[in-house]
């Protein structure tokens, strides 16, 4: 029972972090960023030296953990900010569909850039191996990593919410999310806020990539995809642009997947995802604006 709870929480943590990364950017510029998953993959590969061999040549991965984690976060943030400057700045006035496709094209570019350097074969890496040792808590055995994932997510969420609520930059970001034009008129510097949102979102992608890399022990150019899709769904169920909603929905989705895995009869288990997605459609039917609707998403007439 406790095992199920921790499984749900740790899967939910991943989805919540991903959803937050997407919601941050959506909030300030109405962009659904499909390149997010590829930023996740890129952050892991930044630890490796380019080669097409199956065994990874570790490069920055040898750093001690207190340098390694900031390094990955910085890579994620850097790539994300770079994508804003090079690509998304040109799309400020484009329709959401155009921006979405542009972000998809950018993700495509990043993915194939990695493919060129590293080939498409997954590589085995040992990232922070100390974390895979099992620990025993209240009679449930679980990898230390799972515990750390949950704790780190909680710490990050608290830090982020303090940042968003208590600092001037956070205030500006919330103002921009609510009404971008009005915020600009009141002196919020648009480019700075947007770049800040991209940096935060990229750092979150870096955090996901560390967790995924340590969990699976492989680096794969596709690794961000699955998390990103769930995160994307979580963002919408949570109420687009609402940060709390994104986190809540991320945890709910993680819980739904894990619970269905244990509750469904064995012959229905392969169809688990179909049930999860069916639940997503149901939630949307009853709450099309999401669980926690952000203000200002519905146009007033």
């Amino acid at each position: 029972m406790l095992q199920v709870l921790f499984d749900a929480l740790s899967l939910g943590s991943l989805y919540a972090l991903g959803a937050l990364g997407i919601a941050l950017i959506f909030g300030v510029m109405r962009l659904v960023n499909f390149a997010h998953g590829d930023v996740i993959a890129f952050s892991v590969f930044a630890l490796l030296w380019p080669s097409t061999d199956a065994v990874a040549i570790v490069f920055a991965g040898h750093l001690p953990w207190f340098l390694l984690i900031p390094f990955v976060l910085a890579v994620g943030a850097g790539l994300s900010v770079l994508s804003e400057i090079v690509v998304f700045r040109r799309f400020r006035h484009a329709s959401p569909a155009t921006m979405m496709i542009a972000s998809f094209a950018l993700g495509f570019v990043i993915r194939y850039f990695l493919l060129m350097l590293f080939s498409s074969r997954p590589k085995s890496i040992s990232l922070l191996p100390a974390l895979s040792q099992p620990v025993e808590i209240l009679g449930a055995r679980m990898p230390l990593l799972q515990l750390i994932t949950i704790l780190a997510t909680i710490v990050m969420l608290i830090a982020l919410s303090v940042f968003v609520r208590r600092t001037r930059f956070g205030l500006e970001m919330r103002a921009a999310a609510e009404n971008f034009t009005m915020a600009r008129m009141l002196g919020v510097r648009a480019n700075r806020v947007i770049m800040g949102a991209f940096a935060l979102s990229g750092a979150l992608a870096g955090a996901i990539s560390i967790i995924l890399g340590a969990q699976t022990g492989t680096a794969d150019i596709q690794m961000g995809g699955a998390v990103m899709l769930m995160a994307f769904i979580a963002t919408v169920i949570g109420g687009l642009g609402s940060l709390e909603g994104a986190v809540l929905a991320g945890f709910l989705l993680g819980a739904a997947s894990v619970v269905m895995q244990t509750v469904l009869p064995p012959e229905a288990r392969p169809f688990r995802d179909a049930f999860v997605y069916g639940a997503v459609i149901l939630v949307l039917l009853f709450r099309p604006q999401g669980l926690i609707a952000a203000r200002g998403t519905k146009e007033r007439v």
């Binding site: 659904v32 959401p96 899709l229 994307f232 769904i233 919408v236 169920i237 687009l240 392969p270 169809f271 688990r272 995802d273 179909a274 997605y277 069916g278 997503v280 459609i281 949307l284 039917l285 099309p288 604006q289 999401g290």
Partner: peptide, 25 residues
């Protein structure tokens, strides 16, 4: 019949969930 009651981005995500359902099945 079910999905067209939604609009905007919620409809897009619902169609995506539909795709994933069909694929899983």
């Amino acid at each position: 019949r079910i999905l067209m009651r939604l609009s905007g981005i919620a409809a897009s995500i619902a169609t995506f969930a539909m795709l994933a359902m069909i694929n899983t099945i």
